Amino acid sequence: MSRLPDFEAWAVFAMVADSLSFARAAEELSLSKATVSKAVARLEARLGARLFHRTSRRLALTEAGRAAREDAAALLAAGEAAEARALDANGTPRGRVRLAAPMSFGIAHVAPVLPDFLAAHRQVSVDLHLSDAVVDLVGGGFDLGLRIAALPDSSLRVRRLCGVGRSLVATPAYLARHGRPQHPEDLKAHACLGYAYLPTPDRWLFSNAAGESVTLVPDGPLRANNADALAPALRAGLGLAVQPDFTIWEDLKSGRLERVMPDWQPPPIALNLVMPPGLPRPARVSALIAFLERAFSTAPWAQAETAPQAPLPSPAEAQALT
């Protein structure tokens, strides 16, 4: 019989490939750095290929490492799922949940509520991965993802948590200096601060209750790939920006920002929980789903229904927006 795969080495490689750090992987696995390094070396010897480029300052995947990363993540996820199913036999949530979320939303809203979840579920841990890029849940071995978008059809399972309003906003000082636009065409004469991770960052779409739509090319002094990076320029009065309510609701409440062109709205979006296909879900995942539903369906910025007056974006535009 052929010898079994070195599952431990594959799992260790998956952790190192995810963090690009032997030290962080060792800490996560409660192993010594030497043990982690030996496991990767053992796998490299078995495969006959180097998986990492190593320097004194940097660790990077080789071509062979990039090719093996997805398979390693899938093996690790399958092993964790099998163990979790066995542990779930007694009905107590336990084990690790891998959760992906957008950067700004994750820092401002997900991280602050997780302590309550972890206090209620002492045998569950959460691996929170923050990125404004759209994460491959299946390939990355994630149990859940939070996406703020109008999502197109896919093989993933989606549960809508709440609507998320988006508004064109500016400071009172900016509007006093430059005037208050009434129509999207007026924005051609204004400084527009842009978000680079939109599928169409060079075009803004607005619609009104009468069904009219206007697309324009925004122009301004700053575009960033993170919503929080726009906030200082926006609050300094350097321009207008389209922002989701969860980033600006306190500024609107205090009067630091004002909504502009309320009769014209960007396409509606929602906060969605996205899950890989397949059942059953481990108890630990179901527990986190229920917790996030409760936490975000009643958030002060949440909308019970996404605003109906604007049409949904096309599939090309329906990626995560923040």
Rank of each mutant, 00 (worst) to 15 (best):
P172Q: 12
A45Y: 06
A307Y: 04
P282N: 07
E250N: 10
P266E: 03
A9G: 03
A64M: 10
L240M: 15
M275Q: 14
G278E: 10
M1N: 03
E317C: 07
V285F: 01
A295Y: 01
T55F: 04
V12Q: 09
A108M: 03
A307P: 14
D143N: 14
G255L: 12
N225L: 01
D18K: 14
L61Y: 12
P282F: 06
A68C: 11
S213I: 07
V135G: 06
L240W: 06
A302E: 04
L279F: 09
A150D: 14
R66H: 11
Y197P: 03
L273M: 09
R98Q: 10
P102N: 11
S286Y: 00
N225Y: 06
H183T: 10
S213H: 06
S213D: 05
L47H: 07
A173E: 15
M103R: 13
S207E: 07
Q123D: 15
L288H: 10
A60F: 06
A77G: 05
A209H: 13
S297Q: 15
P172V: 06
D71M: 04
E293W: 02
V274W: 03
L20Q: 15
D245C: 01
K38G: 00
E83R: 15
D132T: 10
A11Y: 12
A45D: 15
E305P: 00
Q309Y: 00
D136W: 01
A210N: 12
D263L: 09
Y195C: 08
G91F: 06
A209F: 10
P201H: 13
R122G: 14
S314Q: 12
D219F: 05
L114T: 13
S167N: 07
A11C: 12
A74W: 03
F206C: 05
G179N: 08
R69F: 09
L321M: 11
V285Y: 01
D127P: 02
H53V: 14
G211Y: 12
D116I: 00
V285R: 01
E250Q: 13
D219L: 12
F52H: 05
N225H: 14
L51A: 09
L114V: 10
P300I: 08
S56A: 15
D186K: 11
R177G: 08
I289E: 11
A49M: 08
G65F: 12
